[in-house]
Amino acid sequence: MSSIHARIPADLAATIRKETNWSLSHRLRHGAQSVLARAYPRVFGMIREPSWLFFDLVFPILGMCSFVFLLRSRGVDDAWVSATILASALLTFWTSVIWMMAGQFRWERDSGNLTLYITAPVGLGPITLGMAVGGALGMAFRAVVIITAGSLAFGATYEIREPALLALTLLLGVSAMYALGACLAAFFLISGREADHLGDLLNEPMQLLGGVFAPIRSLGLVGMVAIGVLPLAPAADALRQIAIPQLAVSGLLPVNIELLILIVMVVVFSIGSRYALRYIERVGRAGGKLLTRAD
């Protein structure tokens, strides 16, 4: 030990002080790199498991087909077939929010990753954003496949007069969904396994309230409430109005209002998730069990 001490630099404390004093640009670069690093396994990791890819695509397509066959058997206008295919694509994002965002921190905790994230100098914010970015990119591929397959199989058509508006709506809708997912991630971590069960139970009601396969307008007051709290609802309603003009009359609110609602949701859920992530870290450090794997 004495020989080690003899070689320790006299200015070690100053060196460490300098090392730990990160500039704003350093922190911004670090945050951006961390987002991309955490997104990586979501985008590329999943491609490596062909069975996951197969089932992630086949099951939603089968679900979509059953709805389309039902609509056709009832002689419903083909515009609703196009709407169903569009809704199925949107639903892949929502499923990912429930399965791969909300429940993720519990999985990360049980696998030991959460401990490493907490003790790394990155913070949970960029990690969560990376989860969302990676999830959204991974699901975008699935959504494109679903729309392509649905369009080819059922001859669905879309009349997109304002592609920029469509892209903006999709971006805002997906952002709002994943921002809500970040809040839910903290809630699910605190609530434990019960939250998973609740998520499963509420899956179908959420789709109904989200107006995925039927116009939310038909839900009346309940629909109005849903459109104010559930990102899926204004996103689905607005996308249907933009991509299928003949269904614009079935929209609950004008597209501009629904975009405004989505913007508010993105802001509120993003701020909420920031507080929620800080809260779980604070509670976890105080309680001792939330952040670390049970031995």
Binding site: W22, S34, L36, Y117, P121
Partner: peptide, 8 residues
Amino acid sequence: AMFAQFYG
């Protein structure tokens, strides 16, 4: 590589 990014 992922953790190298997390470590800044």
